[in-house]
Nucleic acid binder design. Structure first.
Lengths: 139, 139
DNA sequence: ACTTTACATCGATGAGCATCGATGTCCTGC
DNA sequence: GCAGGACATCGATGCTCATCGATGTAAAGT
């Protein structure tokens, strides 16, 4: 891949103090330490996709919803079980649950009158993996 | 672990179909269905605190910022290196970096004219840990 | 058929946020 | 001291989002 992703400007203008700090004599082209091979740190499209999932859990009430669901017997809960501990109205809880479902974090299963929500297996683990393997390219 | 986290519903009203499922017969007046006795799976204050950190990375540009910083030589980068790959103005990048610093994800170190940003060790791992250990109460 | 219960959807509203241009501050070189 | 570069802060603007009340839908009981 091209050097541009490293955005290592090799600078020529002497007005750049970093030339002195880095000792800019070498044509530093390849990744000095950590970058995998060459691919961009994180694709813009992938960043948008990931941000949609992170946005879904980046809300106090939705974090508690996920926690409540996973802590429920059988790892599933219906809306009526969730409105009270969150102290929110039923439409608001339904709204948050829909966001979590759309983000692929929760799963909805209707049984009779109730709608049971459960975790999508591996969804949160995939997100956690993004945070631990920080290269962004590595899948 | 106490049963409360299971919020075992004991139900009494016969109008509730789940009474048949669970087979409840005892007269419980409070907590109509499920609410745990006392402790919630995730504390509200902790949810707010965590959501602040998740909000910080729940943005496409900030995700790429973190990725760019970690992929930079020495795992640090200055603002001038970050404006170009993100295609954003310098004030906007500074704004996003401040949010990441305030959230405890990035660290700022001023050297001469440049401000170098680097990852706070363990910050992202702590967030990832929240997603993998899903109980919420258990630390 | 009517009522009740559980849940989703629909506007509306108010707060928060991302982005930008302009400006201020600090440092470096002349 | 003066000019220029790097970065932060400020104020404004447009957009997204969280929350709510009202309403719609579907299922179960009477």
């Amino acid at each position: 891949m091209s050097i541009d992703v490293l955005h290592t400007e090799v600078m020529s203008t002497a007005t750049d103090p970093r030339a002195a700090i880095v000792g800019g004599s070498e044509p530093v082209e390849t990744a000095p330490c950590c970058v995998p091979s060459g691919s961009a740190p994180m694709d813009a499209a992938r960043a948008v996709s990931l941000s949609r999932q992170f946005k879904a859990i980046a809300d106090p009430n939705r974090l508690r919803l996920v926690s409540l669901v996973s802590a429920s017997p059988g790892s599933e809960a219906c809306v009526c079980d969730l409105t009270e501990p969150l102290d929110l109205g039923q439409p608001t809880v339904s709204h948050h649950l829909k966001i979590l479902v759309d983000a692929g974090i929760l799963r909805r299963e209707k049984r009779g009158v109730w709608a049971y929500y459960s975790l999508v297996p591996g969804a949160l683990d995939a997100l956690a993996d993004v945070l631990t393997t920080r290269t962004g390219t590595g899948r």
